[in-house]
């Protein structure tokens, strides 16, 4: 709690590390008025803030179930290799099961163009300033996509390890992709995302000899926020781990 004004609601922690310049106390910048507290009639609301999204997600889930379509929500930071993983997966799974993709990005159709080149049906959602997909966006995407009954639909979320975690889309499973070049501490830095994953794919394991990352420690960090979560090492480049990944998908 701030000793100057007593405001204590902040979760944003600012720490001065040893070795950096130290000073007694901190400068206080008042950026919000302190309400004296309104005193009119109180109306109890008690409604979940994500109730609308969760309701739409339930509709998506029912819509998908009616058609025997399995949706997998792929989430990661930008550059982890989600689109590359999808392109290779579509090529390998193609003969076994129809695959379609909903691409989420702030801007451009670049990812959708890469997916289209594989022959799969694809819809691009551009969120503009938005940092995540929500259930309403996916509903629009699915209506455009019209996935074949019994198909597998990948939802490639906006590259971001924070915001997409909070929005249920109606998917059957959540997969977090993390690449070894991002370091082994991502699950600790972005615990909400990893806590909700059904599977963690560790991509780019072919680069392990060149980075200071140990797979066992990365897996341990995943399990410290999500006990029992399966961690699947994989390389889109070499194909290592693609077989267990395909098996996991086919079992959905």
């Amino acid at each position: 709690m701030c000793g100057t004004c007593g405001c204590g609601g902040s979760d944003v922690r600012v720490e001065v590390l040893a070795g950096a310049s130290q000073h007694g106390g901190h400068e206080h910048i008042a950026v919000h008025p302190h309400p004296s507290g309104p005193t009119g009639d109180v109306v109890e609301i008690e409604t979940a803030l994500l109730a609308k999204n969760d309701h739409l997600a339930a509709h998506n889930r029912a819509w998908l179930a009616e058609r025997g379509v399995v949706a997998v929500n792929l989430m990661s930071s930008p550059g982890s290799g989600k689109t590359s993983l999808l392109c290779r997966t579509i090529t390998e799974l193609g003969p076994l099961r129809p695959v379609a993709v909903v691409e989420g990005d702030q801007e451009t159709r670049l990812d959708a163009d890469r997916i289209r080149a594989t022959g799969a049906r694809v819809v691009q959602i551009n969120t503009g300033a938005g940092c995540h997909l929500d259930a309403a966006m996916l509903a629009r995407g699915l209506a455009e996509l019209r996935p074949a009954p019994g198909s597998l639909v990948f939802v490639e979320n906006v590259g971001n390890l924070v915001c997409p975690a909070l929005f249920d889309l109606g998917e059957a499973a959540r997969v977090v992709v993390v690449s070894v070049t991002e370091g082994e501490d991502k699950p600790l830095k972005y615990p909400t995302m990893f806590a909700l994953a059904d599977l963690v794919v560790v991509n780019k394991v072919d680069l392990l000899p060149y980075v200071d990352v140990r797979l066992d420690r990365l897996a341990e960090h995943c399990r410290s926020v999500n006990p029992g979560v399966r961690v699947l090492p994989l390389s889109v480049t070499t194909g290592e781990g693609m077989q267990p990944w395909r098996d996991w998908l086919v079992a959905r």
């Binding site: 109180v42 109890e44 409604t47 803030l49």
Partner: peptide, 8 residues
């Protein structure tokens, strides 16, 4: 994560 109440 919810709205508890409002004061009119």
């Amino acid at each position: 994560l919810s709205v508890v109440s409002v004061v009119l």
